[in-house]
């Protein structure tokens, strides 16, 4: 599917994705398992921001981009590597935008949530249930077992934007960082996060089997 065709469908969601105020750091393809499974058959780090997990017949690839705009652009590039001339839009409640394979070819779904591009392909397993589980994990504000602390959060405003430094106080291998600031455009900038907008920011460190840590601050510019 040509990139320009994909962008026609993607363009209308760019502003909404930006205003969602969600940024994910360190998310891996194996963090969310299909129902009834625990360990993937294969887990790979293709490059530091792109990981892949194979769960029986389902192959999940996640790519972490700098921002939601970059992820949506990357989705269009990904679809440009699909030989099909048309790809239907996926369910409207999946990701910021999603595409699926039509019925006559092997199941596949491609979607973006915040700055994460997710691709799930399979030979003949319905991939949508796993896609919904991953999307729910990405977008949810952690509620249970959350405790304040455990994160060094530094906020440095300047005239245009705020630079945020996030340093968890412990090493975690299987977790990820979730930044939520409604209505604020968030983006990765090297090891830091930059934010355009004002309001409260919440930073969570999420790791399966451990309590979730939370740090908060207020965003603004000078």
């Amino acid at each position: 599917m040509r990139m320009d065709k994909a962008m026609n469908a993607i363009d209308p969601v760019v502003a909404g994705a930006r205003a969602e105020g969600l940024l994910i750091l360190g998310f891996n393809a194996w963090i969310v398992a299909p129902d009834g499974m625990n360990t993937p058959d294969v887990r790979e780090t293709i490059v530091p921001v792109r990981t892949r997990a194979l769960w029986a017949d389902q192959r999940v690839t996640t790519t972490e981009l700098e921002s939601s705009e970059a992820a949506l652009h990357s989705l269009a590039l990904e679809l440009d590597a699909n030989q099909l001339s048309e790809l239907p839009l996926g369910p409207t409640d999946l990701g910021n935008v999603s595409f699926v394979h039509p019925d006559r070819v092997a199941p596949a779904v491609f979607f973006v949530r915040a700055n994460v591009l997710v691709t799930i392909t399979s030979r003949n397993t319905d991939v949508l249930p796993l896609a919904y589980r991953i999307d729910a994990e990405l977008r949810a504000r952690p509620q249970d077992n959350v405790r304040e602390g455990g994160i060094d959060l530094q906020v440095q405003p300047d005239a245009k934007q705020t630079t945020i430094s996030i340093k968890p106080q412990w090493r975690f291998d299987e977790g990820y960082v979730k930044v939520i600031a409604k209505g604020v455009a968030l983006a990765k900038a090297g090891k830091e996060v930059v934010a355009e907008g004002k309001g409260p920011i919440e930073v969570f460190v999420v790791e399966k089997g451990r309590e979730t840590y939370l740090a908060t601050a207020a965003l603004g510019t000078l």
Partner: peptide
Amino acid sequence: PMTMFGGNGSEPFQLTSWLTAMRSGR
């Protein structure tokens, strides 16, 4: 129809991942 192992545009071919897939038995 989807490219599975990279290589769109100037993106590198993911040979390691392809070898892993072949050896996975899946």
